[in-house]
Amino acid sequence: MFRPQLDPTGERWYTWEFMIPSSWGKTDKGFAIMQIHESEGGPVAVQFTLHLEHDRLVARVPMDVTVPGTESYRVGSHPFIFDRWYSMCLHANWQLDSSGFWELYVDRVPMLKRYGFANAYDREYGGYLKLGIYNFNRVSEWGEKTIYIRNINIWSGDDGYKAVIRGAPICPKHVLED
C-alpha cells in the first residue's frame, strides 16, 4: 500500500548505486533507470528522470514542473560505461515557490545543479523514488534487460555532503560537449 510522506515538499537526499551489464547492447532508444514519480491523486506526474541514452546518463525534467504531464527536456548528461558501478546522489528541495533546487551527482561529481524554481506539484502526495528499468519511450523491441541496484537511501533535511556522499563534491573535468 502506498503511504504518502509527511510533507510532499522539503529537502531530500536520494542515494543509490547501480551497474548495467554489457548484455544491454545498443542503447539508442533511451531507457529510464530512475524516476521521481507521483501517481496518486491525479494523472501520472514525473518530476525527474535519469535515462541511459547511447553512451550517456541523461537527466530529464518536465518543461513545466508545476504542471503534471508536460513534455520533458534534457538538463544534464554524464559519460556511461557498461559493467561499472556508479554511485548516485540526487539532492532536491521540493518546493512550490522559487526556493526549489536539484543537484545530481555521479560518483560525487556534479552532473546537474539548478536552483531557484518551483519543482513540486501542488498535490497531496509528493514524489517517490523509482529505481529500475522503465520503457519510458515505449520502445517496441524491448527485449530482456537487467540492472543491478544496491545501497538505496533517502534522507530528509540538510545532513550535508560529508554525511550523504561521504565527502565534498569533486570538481568535474572541463570537457566541452555537443
Rank of each mutant, 00 (worst) to 15 (best):
33 I>A: 00
126 G>A: 06
97 D>V: 05
10 G>H: 02
134 Y>H: 12
15 T>L: 00
29 K>W: 05
113 K>Q: 15
58 V>A: 08
42 G>W: 05
119 N>L: 15
42 G>P: 01
121 Y>G: 14
73 Y>T: 04
54 H>W: 00
61 V>C: 01
135 N>M: 12
141 E>F: 06
163 A>K: 14
24 W>P: 01
23 S>Q: 14
29 K>S: 06
140 S>G: 00
121 Y>M: 12
157 G>W: 06
31 F>M: 12
46 V>Q: 04
107 D>V: 10
76 G>M: 04
6 L>S: 10
100 G>W: 02
61 V>I: 15
122 D>W: 01
19 M>A: 13
56 R>Q: 09
79 P>N: 09
62 P>Y: 03
148 Y>H: 13
73 Y>E: 00
176 L>V: 14
94 W>N: 15
137 N>S: 07
25 G>L: 07
93 N>C: 09
138 R>H: 08
100 G>I: 12
98 S>G: 13
95 Q>P: 03
66 T>C: 06
77 S>A: 11
25 G>K: 06
98 S>E: 15
161 Y>K: 14
17 E>P: 05
1 M>A: 12
130 K>R: 13
73 Y>N: 00
168 A>R: 04
15 T>P: 00
75 V>D: 14
61 V>P: 00
166 R>W: 04
166 R>K: 15
1 M>E: 11
63 M>V: 11
62 P>R: 03
86 Y>M: 13
1 M>S: 14
172 P>A: 04
72 S>F: 01
28 D>R: 11
159 D>G: 09
57 L>K: 03
21 P>Y: 07
16 W>R: 02
82 F>H: 14
168 A>F: 01
4 P>R: 06
47 Q>E: 05
135 N>V: 07
78 H>V: 03
141 E>C: 10
168 A>G: 13
138 R>V: 11
167 G>V: 09
123 R>Q: 12
118 A>R: 12
157 G>V: 09
108 R>H: 08
22 S>W: 04
59 A>I: 04
169 P>C: 06
51 H>M: 09
150 R>D: 13
15 T>H: 00
60 R>I: 06
17 E>Y: 01
123 R>C: 05
12 R>K: 10
77 S>T: 11
33 I>T: 04
124 E>Q: 14
19 M>E: 08
67 V>R: 06
157 G>L: 11
125 Y>S: 10
122 D>P: 11
102 W>R: 15
43 P>Q: 14
158 D>V: 06
52 L>D: 05
94 W>G: 04
24 W>M: 14
168 A>Y: 01
178 D>T: 10
145 K>P: 02
104 L>H: 05
7 D>V: 08
139 V>E: 13
115 Y>C: 09
23 S>P: 00
140 S>E: 05
20 I>W: 01
137 N>R: 15
83 D>S: 09
152 I>Y: 02
49 T>A: 12
37 H>I: 11
4 P>Q: 12
160 G>H: 13
23 S>E: 15
62 P>T: 12
84 R>H: 09
104 L>Q: 06
